[in-house]
């Protein structure tokens, strides 16, 4: 199972500001191991989705060009305090994880 994620959602006016930190090595598959000289196999998050109260707000495709331990910030208009945000990801090896937060 993948490492835990961190997520925080706060209201700023009528917009919910969501910040997510995912733990992931994000290997591009192009980097060589310094010791063995072998290419490190690609291992990165390919899909990230977010929902607010079950309704999809974000559907992202990622590549290995995103930094290690990806950070993602996005804003959603409409939700209220107490609404639930769920962010989930899947990587190219079939691993997945999700985290949820209550908008505060």
């Amino acid at each position: 199972m993948a490492e835990p994620m961190r997520i925080r959602a706060t209201m700023a006016g009528d917009v919910a500001d969501v910040k997510v930190l995912m733990n992931h090595p994000m290997e591009t598959g192009l980097r060589k191991d310094a010791k063995t000289g072998q290419l490190v196999p690609a291992h990165y998050i390919t899909d990230v989705t977010a929902t607010v109260n079950g309704a999809k707000v974000l559907d992202a495709g990622l590549s290995g060009g995103i930094s290690k331990n990806p950070y993602l910030g996005f804003r959603v208009k409409g939700p209220k305090k107490g609404d639930k945000v769920v962010v989930s990801w899947a990587d190219n090896k079939g691993d997945k994880n999700s985290a949820e937060a209550i908008i505060g």
């Binding site: 917009v15 607010v52 309704a55 999809k56 707000v57 974000l58 559907d59 992202a60 495709g61 990622l62 590549s63 060009g65 995103i66 996005f74 804003r75 959603v76 208009k77 409409g78 939700p79």
Partner: peptide, 11 residues
Amino acid sequence: VADFGLMGGAE
């Protein structure tokens, strides 16, 4: 690098 599809009120 990435493509973010926005819907359902996402800014």
